[in-house]
Amino acid sequence: MVRLITHNLLACHAKNCTSNNFPLQFKDIEIELREAEFNPDFIRGFLPKLEWKALIDAAKQLGDTSLPSEQPEMIDDEFLKNLHHVLLEIHIEEGAMICPNCQHVYPISNGIPNMLLAEHEIG
C-alpha cells in the first residue's frame, strides 16, 4: 500500500539526487478509503517523526483538509482521529510519485510503489 504514513518517509534515491528530493509528488492517482483500527498511542508516538508540511500538502492533494497547517500544541482526540484517518485510511492504489528535483517517476500499481532504480540510476 501507499498511504501517507509511508509517503512521509519516502525520498528519491536516484544517483546524485540528494537535495529537494522530498516529498515525492503524486500524479494521476486513484485512491480508496478503507477503515483502519484507531490506535491513539501509536499516532501520538509517531507524531514527532512526521514532516508536517509534507503531510498537509499531500493530504490536500488527496482532498483532505481536516488537519491544521501547523502542528497544534494541544493534542486532543479529535486531532488524533483526523491524523489517523489521513495517515492510515487513504490508500493510493494506482498512479505515480514524482521526484520534485530530478523528476524520476516511481509508479504505484495495485497499491505497491515501485522504488527500484535502473542500473544506471543507482548512486
Binding site: V2, R3, H13, A36, I112, P113, L116
Partner: peptide
C-alpha cells in the same frame, strides 16, 4: 488479514529520509 505498508525495492538502496526508522 490487515492492510500492510509494503515497498517494492532493493535492500541495497535507501529510498527513505535517512535515519527515519526507529
Amino acid at each position: 488479514g490487515v492492510a500492510r505498508e509494503v515497498i517494492w525495492g532493493d535492500v541495497l538502496d535507501n529510498p527513505w529520509r535517512h535515519g527515519v526508522f526507529d
